[in-house]
Design a protein around this nucleic acid. Structure first.
Lengths: 110, 110
DNA sequence: CCTGTACTCAACCATTTGGTTGAACATCAA
DNA sequence: TTGATGTTCAACCAAATGGTTGAGTACAGG
């Protein structure tokens, strides 16, 4: 990473396998930092850093709850990112369909 | 990056602003390496490397056409990635909706 | 108040990444 | 064939990333 567009940050955040796994886990429900860290062979601090990256990207939010810091996945950004991807895919498919039509036409009238 | 799941690779590939811009450009139609490199202040070789990353991720494909190597955006992977994101967002929204319903219920019956 | 628990912050290190330049390869055009 | 054009390959470098450990902060419970 190095720049600042929202989508670039989102993708960069999801580009790390540990962070992707964290997001997967959070899709099932909120979790504390220790809970999120448990499955990984890395230190709690490292996981804490990953969560910070996800939070900076707007993918998760944290709140304080006693001495624990539950993390919640925020759907909104994921939705917008999905929309971006979907729009690209849609446009491409339409374009390729038109191309195929032209080619078929050429074949028929040959 | 460091691992191998398809999605992690896809996201990592799209996480770089230059590569995201390349994908944006390709959504409008195929382009050669030089054409893709033109808007950027970096060397042609650097752009060539970026395209290699996108190709390895399965986001684009290259063919030879004379001395030129046109790059094409492949919709399929983008679609699958969008589906992943959308599914997460959908599940979350459903979960939060249920939560809200429960909270409303508690409020009514207080 | 003191101790343990749950984190975060800071300094540091190794590896990866994104860039560079220079040389090589493939194709077209003369 | 020779030279120009388009692109890739290789070696190299600086900066960013992901990890570590050690110290600090915030709250809960005895």
């Amino acid at each position: 990473m190095q720049e600042a567009t929202e989508l670039a940050i989102t993708f960069a955040a999801l580009g790390d396998p540990v962070r992707r796994a964290i997001v997967d886990r959070l899709a099932a429900g909120d979790a504390t930092v220790s809970e999120l860290a448990a499955p990984f062979p890395i230190s709690l601090q490292a996981v804490s850093k990953h969560i910070k990256v996800l939070e900076a990207a707007g993918i998760v939010s944290r709140r304080r709850e006693g001495q624990t810091r539950p993390v919640r996945l925020e759907p909104e950004l994921l939705d917008r990112t999905a929309a971006w991807l979907h729009e690209h895919a849609r446009r491409l498919e339409a374009r390729y369909a038109r191309l195929d039509a032209v080619l078929d036409d050429m074949k028929e009238n040959r």
